[in-house]
Amino acid sequence: MSELSYRDALNQALNEEMSRDANVFLMGEEVARYNGAYKVSQGLLDKFGSARVVDAPISELGFAGLGVGAAMVGLRPVIEMMTWNFAILAMDQIVNNAAKLRHMSGGQLRCPIVFRGPGGAGGRLSSQHSQALEAHYVHCPGLKVVAPATPADAKGLLKSAIRDDNPIVFIEGELLYGVKGDVPDGEHLVPIGKADIKRPGDQVTIITWSRMLLWYVNEAAQKLADQGISAEVLDLRTLRPLDEEAILTSVRKTNRVVIVEEGWPLASVGATLTDLIQREAFDDLDAPVQRVTGLDINMSYAANLEAATQPSVERIIAAVNQVLYR
């Protein structure tokens, strides 16, 4: 076990997987000589050379598709998107090709590729650079979507993603790179599709993922504990496929649910979770499910507007009070 930043945990995962398997290569903007826009690929060019750590031109659609083509014939590309905002330009290759190759070919082809990079608000960047877009990909059959919150999960999930034979959308938290935590050394694999109880509790379940956990949910849960309320915090970690069993088990224990997500409220992951819970655990619910989301507006630059657009500890506590009828 070592204390590592989220960034270094990802770096370790890449380093270990690239050492283990020469079919793995990393391509993206600024990943090689610049060592990564967020320094996730620090040192990898020197170690693995310029065919395995490739600086791409600013052609998201082009190099995403290049990665898909390489995956179709046996390589295992890791395609870094400088941020997921820019991956919108690559969505055709991710959604129309990567996600559909297995299907269109009737099982003749597989597409073992990881698209990874930071998502969510980056801090004072306004609307085009502050979006939590996971719902776009969660919508699509054929993709798996992963969004780790902690350094340990970041490492373990990236290693699993690289070994998976399906296309993976791996969304890191833009503000999480500097966060530190204990990370198991060497072979540490976190299974894709498994949620994790980050804090056990029995009066209310707070479901969340990625940065919301560390920025708001942990603090809200602690404040609630100080008031004598025991909240269970469930970190989904994988958004597709959903760990329905873990979600429903927790709901059946606490009977009350608050979902916290950074993204917009309409057609979101939280909306889908709400649907799942009311269908599968209606009789276990003691209150309607409450959701705390980013506001249904575009992100502003001004510090106060930016903060007020996102979920907050106060809004989470208010939602918990609502489901507890306090």
């Binding site: 598709g65 179709m72 055709d92």
Partner: peptide
């Protein structure tokens, strides 16, 4: 949409 795929296959070769 197939144009980038071909470059990736050639990249693999």
């Amino acid at each position: 949409g197939q144009i980038p795929l071909a470059a990736g296959m050639a990249f693999a070769s």
